[in-house]
């Protein structure tokens, strides 16, 4: 097992950012870490990376606890928005130093990718624009070829074109040298094609940890007369309902309508698939009516 988290809790003063989080991540898988703002994504990654210490519980990276551990540090890379590099060295020199620290550093690749992104090696990190910083950080992270690669919102601030190029770069690098990757995002949609598993967290808890294809089929949307829909599925748990549209919409678990498709369609109720990113949205929403509840 590449990453083990067991009952990890993180408290900041009075605020509990992580409330007993447990999960296992297998070696060489790409996992999408999904959650709303403030769900605890960054806190979790910081603890897995060993930058912060959990208040209680334990974390293991290939059997080693990551906090203050040099062995983990040279085999793990954590890419995030606020990464800072020494201001006295230019980007080319930063690459030069990475070569000494990371045993699998791909110098040629790093320089080629940087040139492709139109960023000069003579530039300094603190002079780059937000998008350029993100691009440089991601290139740096990929070129380390670390066994464990943690990417926290790596595409923040990048323009559309470089974004899709960088997703492609992640995939190509992963194929060339498989490694355990966690990539966090609030847009599952954007990383869907890349990910094998989804780890959905909400309010410091793990809501769901499953293969992407299973997440897709988890919920269904029923469209039709809302009273009729509710009558036909009295025991189903409702994740979302909206009666203010022309046709009522109800989101329920796919298992609650299993093998009743024809019966429902005879009653004028149509069944629609719910995309993986929508599943994540509904599983983590506070209310059953969404934004419309606020305006009631």
């Amino acid at each position: 097992m590449a990453i083990v988290c067991n009952e990890v809790i993180k408290k900041y003063r009075n605020h509990k950012a992580l409330k007993s989080m447990s999960f296992l991540i297998e070696e060489d898988k790409i996992t999408g870490l999904i959650g709303r703002n403030g769900a605890g994504k960054s806190t979790l990654l910081k603890i897995v990376a060993g930058l912060q210490k959990a208040t209680s519980g334990h974390v293991q990276i290939y059997g080693e606890q990551p906090f203050n551990n040099l062995k983990v540090a040279s085999n793990l890379v954590f890419i995030e928005d606020t990464m800072s590099f020494s201001p006295i060295f230019n980007l080319g020199e930063l690459f030069q130093m990475a070569k000494d620290f990371f045993p699998h550093w791909q110098d040629d690749l790093a320089r080629k990718l940087l040139a492709y992104a139109n960023i000069s090696e003579k530039e300094y990190h603190h002079h780059l624009s937000k998008g350029q910083k993100s691009t440089f950080n991601l290139i740096y992270g990929l070129a380390t070829r670390c066994k464990v690669t943690l990417l926290d919102e790596p595409m923040n601030g990048m323009d559309e074109a470089i974004r899709s190029d960088m997703y492609r770069a992640i995939l190509k690098e992963y194929i060339a040298f498989p490694r355990t990757i966690i990539i966090s995002s609030h847009h599952l949609h954007e990383i869907e094609h890349l990910t094998e598993d989804v780890l959905l967290i909400n309010h410091g808890h793990v809501t769901l940890h499953a293969p992407l294809e299973d997440v897709k089929g988890l919920l269904v949307k029923l469209v039709g007369n809302i009273t009729k829909i509710k009558e036909s599925i009295p025991s189903a748990e409702i994740y979302y309902e909206n009666e203010s549209l022309v046709n009522g919409e109800v989101i329920v678990e796919a298992t609650s309508i299993a093998s009743r498709e024809t019966e429902l369609s005879q009653q004028g109720i149509s069944i629609h698939p719910v995309s993986a990113s929508e599943v994540c949205k509904y599983l983590t929403s506070q209310t059953r009516g969404g934004i419309d509840d606020v305006f009631k």
Binding site: R168, L171, L212, E213
Partner: peptide, 17 residues
């Protein structure tokens, strides 16, 4: 599965499936 992953820009595990 790796060729398919590159061709379709998807995770190799998905192509493997």
């Amino acid at each position: 599965q790796y060729q398919l992953a590159e061709m379709f820009n998807i995770n190799p595990a998905t192509a493997g499936k």
